[in-house]
């Protein structure tokens, strides 16, 4: 009986990407909807989207860093 070997932290990082994935989906999708409704403010919306995306991204990257630190 030798099943899967390796570090459980690998799975941890996989799990850590789920949340930011959902978050990025919502942010980008809603920006698309808003841009379709009001194309004239597209530039401003894009900037705000980038800010939101950057904040969400950190959560996923924290998972990566934790994965490297605790293996």
């Amino acid at each position: 009986m030798n099943g899967i070997t390796g570090s459980i932290a690998t799975i941890g990082y996989g799990l850590a990407t789920i949340g930011p994935g959902i978050g990025l989906g919502i942010v980008i999708g809603q920006t698309q909807i808003a841009t379709a409704r009001q194309p004239e403010v597209a530039g401003r919306l894009f900037t705000n989207m980038m800010i939101g995306a950057a904040l969400i991204e950190v959560l996923g990257l924290l998972g990566l860093v934790a994965g490297l630190m605790f293996t």
């Binding site: 950190v58 990257l61 924290l62 990566l64 860093v65 490297l68």
Partner: peptide
């Protein structure tokens, strides 16, 4: 977060 974002992105 500024540090970690840039570092982790480039490392990944």
């Amino acid at each position: 977060t500024l540090t970690v974002r840039l570092l982790a992105n480039m490392m990944a």
